[in-house]
Amino acid sequence: MTLRQQLACFAAIAAAQLFSCSRPQPTPSGVVIEIKSPLGLPRLETPADNPPTSETIALGRRLFYEKKLSADGTLSCASCHSPTAGFADPRRFSVGVGGKLGARNAPTVLNAAYSPVQFWDGRSPSLEDQAGGPIANPVEMNMSHDLAVGRLNADPEYVKQFDGAFGPGPITVLKLQRAIASFERTLLSGNSPFDRYFFGGERSAMSPAAIRGLEIFNNAKRGNCSVCHKIGEQNAPFADGKFHNIGAGLNAEGELTDLGRFTQTKDEHDKGAFKTPTLRNIAQTAPYMHDGKQKTLKDVVDFYVGGGNSNPYLDKEMKELKLTGEERADLVAFLEALTGDIPANSGPPK
């Protein structure tokens, strides 16, 4: 082979590699649809490279309930984000493949689409990225991405459905993540009694107790809850997308057992800080806090009345609250008014 031939061959290989790398991303091939936000939620932003389509949403829904994605075929996303438990887990810690126990309480998927980052410690920047995490996590579904994709590629039904959603081509993990993320974007909860009262002007939508609870919730000198669980003028995310240390998760000796956000940032101030969870459908998603220690909403209110747990990194907004018994009950009534409708077509596909 002459030098020229060698160079030509090398160039051809390089070009082929370049071509394969710049292969079009698996963007959905179908007609883009708009996911309508219910009353009380902002307009939903969707990523330019993964706009929602009916096909990807339907595929994502099937994958969300697909047990093939776990090593032993026993678990799906819904095993720990159950539609009958507000898309969360009623157990303190979720149980993974082989009975392995997770270290944090599974948060709800409802309205996760609005969260700027995913997981309690914010380690994932998007729903797409997040969707890949639990599949491979050894204490969750414990399944390598290659194996998961292999199982789907071996199923003609899935091949057909993926082709319909992304155009012809092999099933890839990125397509799987995008489909699940698109389905999760439809899991929006709004139009709760609170939304109908506060944004819809329906004065009888909330009970008098819940109305009094709202006042305490919003009042910086009383409950001061909305300092992190935000209520806006147009909509109410009941979160701030930030991380706070409220002292949850201390052991008997008063030490932090989970450093939370610090594990990602290594910033001292983030020790024991966790992402503010949404409070929507909170009455359905017991137990509470990242460690699932609080069993009831009353326990949660009592925890805050007590000022959380002291530790060197406690958020400055955490203070002992002076609330009467009735006021504490009013706060619980308000939290119970945050249960919105679970969208249709969110349960296991027929």
Binding site: K293, K295, F303, G307
Partner: peptide
Amino acid sequence: REWNQSQDAGADPLIR
């Protein structure tokens, strides 16, 4: 050092 910690029903004893 002053401290406070909540203790839910059935929790282990706090030790200080």
